[in-house]
Write a protein that binds this DNA or RNA. Structure first.
Lengths: 347, 347
DNA sequence: TCCCAAATCTGAAACGTTACAGGTAGGCTA
DNA sequence: TAGCCTACCTGTAACGTTTCAGATTTGGGA
């Protein structure tokens, strides 16, 4: 052994831990009388390290509370241990963000991953935060929402080989991990349930601008039900989920005061439903009597206020969990086609 | 010059940018015919670098889209450029998390800082995520909520010299950055407004367990108003903001069906108010007639559903902005005593 | 002309980690 | 006994940055 063993602890023997500094591989190496490389390998159970050594090293590591330095690992390997949630700040549908965050965290908390949240405003290019993350390599995986049928972000990330999962589907022939709520089923069931109540002039408050994929799903489900029920669809193209609540209420009041007013409404956002209710009641009508309302919701609010409203639940927290699991597995190299899931409206 | 200038670009002359790899200081140094050190310094406007050189370096950096490698900086300096938001997942009061996140992001987006969110569950030790962050040095600053009068986290972080800001005040004689909503004023004004309506048997639905500081503020404001108005305070110690909505509703129904029922209620959480309303109406009473309700809210929901409810607004998004500004300035060494702010209930 | 200080610029080292390319010891085969 | 293989361990280099301790150049004063 031609090592400069001067101030290294004797091999195969432990030693008191030194100063109060944060322990590094070197600390452990010194204490165990081993080389840094060996320690590194021992901690990750590499096959070329002896059982006894591994045990010893792992014991010391645990005892002195060693935690790998993120910056060191990241600099060397490029691995960030970060999952980035990229959200549109405006399209905050009642509790979406929180539930998404908590769902994702539930999964990540059992892993070495951290969650960073990157909101962007609707006026900005949705690509911008994505490009930033990729260019600076600031995350190992991305979760994003507001997926569009032909989504530039999906294309970009796929081309760059960056793992991601989307909340919502695309229609561009690229396999990628996603989790989606079955909005077609929701719209269908919703309209159906209105038909069952004898309603036959039915309006739908659709998802945000037709740019977003699930808008199409909603329309598909809705028209199918309308056709089957031979009912009349009343189109209200000028308001959607992104419209301000004030405007939704005012417009609803207008429509509900008009001659050809709907007697049933399907609404696909909990917060919009609140404005709808306000508009309906401002027009002097009563829910459950003059008009029925079916809404999607992600929190409990609606049920409490107007029990007459029919509600199908979308569990965003569950979506968060699914999305987190999907990116993580994608990072581990699992095939994208195995990481696609759908959840169904619960009554 | 005894440098090995073999493959370095001629000094004082620019050169085409090389490969498609992510540019580093070395890339710029090569292109500018300078040393890496000089480039590093030039980019941060160090005084020992000539004007001309600085301009040249900064131009190149901009042209090739240079962005410092986070891991490199972090490894060398310990600076993470991360602000960590530590939240209790259970105490999610309607939109608190989202608004907080968006408020903070608004400020951080103009800086090199990123936001990471670390939720913990109420069963767990609140110190745990804090300790983790400090021990692993994973953030430059921390924002946390649910501040207690004697808060172990505040003590710990102060001792360790880690910058932080709290949403809520402490009462432990330690100066630290905070932002708080004036809950005493809220409770006082709320109770006052009920008195003004002629109500005189008033209950308050207080904040989460008395452990949290603002609970005291609420009680102080409330009792002051009650005394001044010579009214009767009705205590409901068994439900608070952390109680499940179901339980709040049931208990409210019980109370409101009882003989000595309040004719005015102060509620300090928007979501709890919803449950209160349900309970009140389940007891066959009408808000605005049999009983008046004042509530704090952080979103628009209440106003839409029961316009009779008197509402004081707490702007959580604004709190987020204030807190972000506070930590950032604290990181820059500003004195804690200058980073304390209060916001007042808006009608 | 010479020397000195100021103005600029420089390479080497270090942060903590992992990948690479060996090295050593011991046992087994021939 | 020599040679070789296996099992285990090793130091060095590199990731990109900043800090340290100079080095070089320039211009001015004597």
């Amino acid at each position: 052994m031609k090592t400069k063993d001067v101030n290294r602890a004797p091999k195969n023997e432990m030693v008191e831990l030194p100063e109060g500094e944060r322990p590094t591989l070197k600390t452990i190496a010194f204490m165990a009388g081993l080389g840094v490389t060996t320690v590194s390998r021992a901690l990750k159970d590499a096959p070329e390290i002896g059982r006894a050594t591994k045990n010893r090293v792992q014991l010391i590591a645990k005892q002195i509370g060693y935690r790998p330095n993120r910056a060191g690992v990241r600099l060397r390997t490029g691995k960030t241990n970060v999952i980035s949630l990229v959200l549109n700040a405006q399209s905050e549908i009642m509790g979406l963000t929180s539930n998404m965050v908590y769902g994702i965290s539930e999964i990540l908390s059992q892993t070495p991953y951290h969650l960073t949240v990157t909101p962007y405003s609707v006026e900005n290019d949705p690509m911008q935060p994505i490009r930033y993350i990729v260019e600076t390599g600031s995350a190992d995986g991305i979760i994003m929402s507001r997926t569009e049928p032909d989504d530039a972000r999906v294309r970009y990330l796929t081309e760059h080989g960056v793992p991601f999962a989307t909340h919502g589907r695309t229609e561009m022939g690229i396999e990628h991990p996603f989790h989606d709520f079955d909005n077609e089923a929701f719209a269908f069931k919703s309209a159906k349930s209105l038909l069952l109540k004898g309603r036959n002039k039915i309006a739908m408050m659709a998802g945000p601008t037709s740019a977003v994929t699930y808008h199409r799903h909603l329309e598909r489900g809705f028209s199918r039900a309308i056709e089957e029920g031979k009912a009349q669809a009343i189109l209200v193209p000028d308001i959607d989920v992104d419209t301000s609540l004030e405007r939704i209420r005012d417009r609803t009041e207008e429509i509900m005061s008009g001659s050809n007013r709907p007697d049933g409404i399907v609404c696909c956002s909990g917060s919009a439903a609140i404005a709808l209710v306000a508009g309906i009641e401002a027009a002097g009508l009563k829910i459950g009597r003059d008009v029925d309302l079916v809404s999607k919701q992600s929190t409990d609010v609606l049920r409490w206020f107007r029990p007459e409203i029919i509600v199908f639940n979308e569990d965003i927290r569950h979506a968060g969990r699914e999305l987190a699991r999907a990116v993580l597995r994608r990072i581990d190299g699992v095939d994208a086609s195995e990481l696609q899931s759908l959840s169904y409206p619960e009554e």
